[in-house]
Write a protein that binds this DNA or RNA. Sequence first.
RNA 1: GGCCCCGUCGUCUAGUGGCCUAGGACUCUGGCUUCUCAAGCCAGCUACGAGGGUUCGAAUCCCUUCGGGGCUGCCA
Length: 484
Amino acid sequence: MAKEVRTRFAPSPTGDLHVGNIRTALFDWAYARHTGGKLIFRIEDTDRERVTDEYIQRAVDTMKWLGLRWDEGPEVGGPYGPYLQSERLEIYTHWANEFLKSGFAYNCYCTTEELEARREEQREKNLPPGYDGRCRELSVDEINAFQGAGRKPVIRMRMPEGETRFTDLIRGEVVFEHKFVPDFVLMRADGSPLYTLAVAVDDVLMKVTHILRGEDLLSSTPRQIRVYQAMGVAAADYPEFAHLPFVMGSDNTKLSKRNGEVSIAWYREEGFLPEAICNYLALLGWSPGDDRENISMTELVELFTVERVNSSPARFDMKKLEAINGDKIRALPLADFLERSIPFLKSAGVISGTPSEIELVKKALPIIQERIVKLTEVVPMLAFLFREDVVFEGEGESKISDEASQSVLKRAIEVLEQIDEWRHEGIDGALRGALIEEMGLKPRVAFSAVRIAITGSHISPPLFESMELLGKERSLKRLRKAIR
RNA sequence: GGCCCCGUCGUCUAGUGGCCUAGGACUCUGGCUUCUCAAGCCAGCUACGAGGGUUCGAAUCCCUUCGGGGCUGCCA
């Protein structure tokens, strides 16, 4: 029987999870689900200068919001925990010491300043950069001298002669000659572990079988493999690697605030649907091989394979995300649409959440569903229904103060007052009869004045439905108020 | 500089030697429809980075070149 697939998503929460992180998480998740395996969620917080508890919590929340459930990790635990690296420090210390004993690693007493100076020299002489191995074979006297001088050593991994060769699931065979892979630090002088140590130790201990991660980590792979070797892992048991291409900004530089928003929390606040984000991101760097653009999480799980992931970087396109978001909103069942819209209306102060307000929102949503692209847009679309008086947008009020508009409004009031059953069909008929047929106006001109008087804007949901929802009294009140 | 990765419309992609005078989607432009805005429908623009090979035949294979990116930390 084939080994159960175990993937892991292991962010270092030095900020909010961003688009690139989530795309990685999505693929890790999809692959685990596709194979019936497990997704491990591990927090890489070895850099305590930069990682904060708040960001860790927000990462957990973001994953949940997106619907990317993990099988082992924060909140759910698991057999190979803890899943926060800051809680696993003794494990790393143990292994670093083992490597020291077995000779895979050695104590290095070089100071930061010395290393910096030597790097500078290497640059000038155009030599390959990296640690020169100075402390590899220190004598007892030299060690005593350093210790006597109060120097605290880092633990450094010894890279042997030769090369590391591995097959990346996305890129094929990759070879790194060790002369370009300098000895690297495992433990800081203060005894805290570095990513290079922790990541490899944890992947082995947590029995990870597939590492899907960003391509920035491609060149650190030989170092990780060296740690596996030092831990005594057989080559056949190394995890498989798949280095995902980057997600770039619109200007083809690293994704940042300037060229496309990065933080997933921002997308949430902006009214993007998690399923739209996942749909968009799934198709960024991967494709099912056919023409489908609309893909559900279920289909993603069904179709996802690492082999179909592209090897070239992708540009992030907000317009396309918005298009997909609009599609997903249009496809929402009313109850679902309602539930997701309410928080936006509440936080904007449009409604407080009373049953009658909710009832009105529910009636109004169908007429705006195909007009919005983001959930935040329900606020400007629907606000007019909940305000006592109309609030004119821009130069709206002046646009209906001219003589022609005024006569339209006066006539509209006259015919509307006669309506007993206040429904959009009747409103439509009355207005059309009076303004179009009787007064001979063009519909777009005639209804524009009424629209502005009712909603405050020349852009609004369909006019007659809007008036029906507003009610006869309030509609007439607004029309009368618009008369000079 | 060195090492590594990458290179099809503006963007995401399909394409694994003939089905490609390169398909789809988003964007953009024009039109239809229409009470505004949308949605919908129709049409259009635009791509195999370049140069050499291999082959009857190349987006697909090989080489060179150019371009982009990553790494080169007691960050991850």
